[in-house]
Design a binder for these strands. Structure first.
Lengths: 157, 157
DNA sequence: TTCGTTGCAAAAGGTTTGCATACCA
DNA sequence: TGGTATGCAAACCTTTTGCAACGAA
């Protein structure tokens, strides 16, 4: 027992020009941003950095819990610096992308209750809220809501 | 007014061999399955069907609310037939994939409250719970939990 | 006969990896 | 100096699209 390789800690983090730049860009952007967007921003600011490095840095930050991540409908990952410990859920405007940390205590409690009731262990949850912010709504009231189901009366057998 | 093109209803659903097969495979698999998995299952059962058709069928079922969808960590979409109206959230085992519909009234109410409080309209929510079911847990107690943050002491300025 | 559906191939789009080079500690 | 980090190119994966042929109604 006491296998040294098991206690092996991850490689030391090296502070590089590129990583600082990604952190800076992240802080400079209050809402969720994709890796590509961050990369474009950095290049526009004259920072020389590879897209690969942006991806790798974001993934590292994700692993250490320094950024929050949501998924676009396309599957694209969007990153946002984690404001404080405790706020980890957001309401994101589908049109302009503005994001708003929301109080999620009720969800946290609910998730804990479900975990306790089902016998599942190490229960993690992801909660994503999207909507249309009132500013966008004022700009253009209604974008033709999708026809609400039932239009395809499939007969199965 | 009364523009006919605006009232245009979606194209009629045609019941084809392939669509019935996808529905069948979906019903035959109680847990979440990806498009590729369903396609492989169908082929193994001797059903001739294109992967494209599986994707298109699943997308159509998703639009009409006949299946529930979750996202893998990779971004892959996983589908599951919707058991009843009302149950739309699941607790999925990260190891064996078994999924369990959970009562999500608390989350629904919370989402409605957030919508009301923020002034956002058309608020949609996705909630995904993952954990380790007791069966998997019994099989192998603990799979080396990831080192809990803080291991990379980054100095930012 | 009509028009939605199928399936192949190819494109698209985001993310990851191999490997030689650059650079932090 | 040693071992990470970087960056390019190419690989990977899932999903979507163009288009000609097929088939349900």
């Amino acid at each position: 027992m006491h296998d040294p390789s098991a206690a092996q800690s991850p490689p030391a983090w090296r502070t590089t020009r590129q990583r600082l730049a990604v952190l800076g860009a992240l802080r400079g952007c209050p809402d969720f941003a994709s890796a590509r967007e961050l990369h474009a921003t950095l290049q526009a600011d004259g920072v020389t950095i590879g897209l690969t490095t942006v991806y790798r840095t974001l993934r590292a930050l994700e692993r250490t819990g320094r950024v929050d991540v949501v998924r676009e409908r396309t599957g694209e990952r969007l990153y946002r610096p984690r404001p404080t410990d405790g706020h980890r859920h957001y309401l994101v405007c589908r049109r302009c992308g503005v994001s708003l940390p929301v109080d999620a205590d009720a969800v946290e409690r609910w998730a804990d209750d479900v975990a306790a009731a089902t016998g599942f262990a190490e229960v993690e949850h992801t909660v994503e809220l999207t909507g249309t912010c009132d500013r966008c709504r004022a700009a253009e009231p209604d974008p033709a809501p999708d026809p609400p189901g039932q239009e395809w009366g499939m007969r199965l057998r």
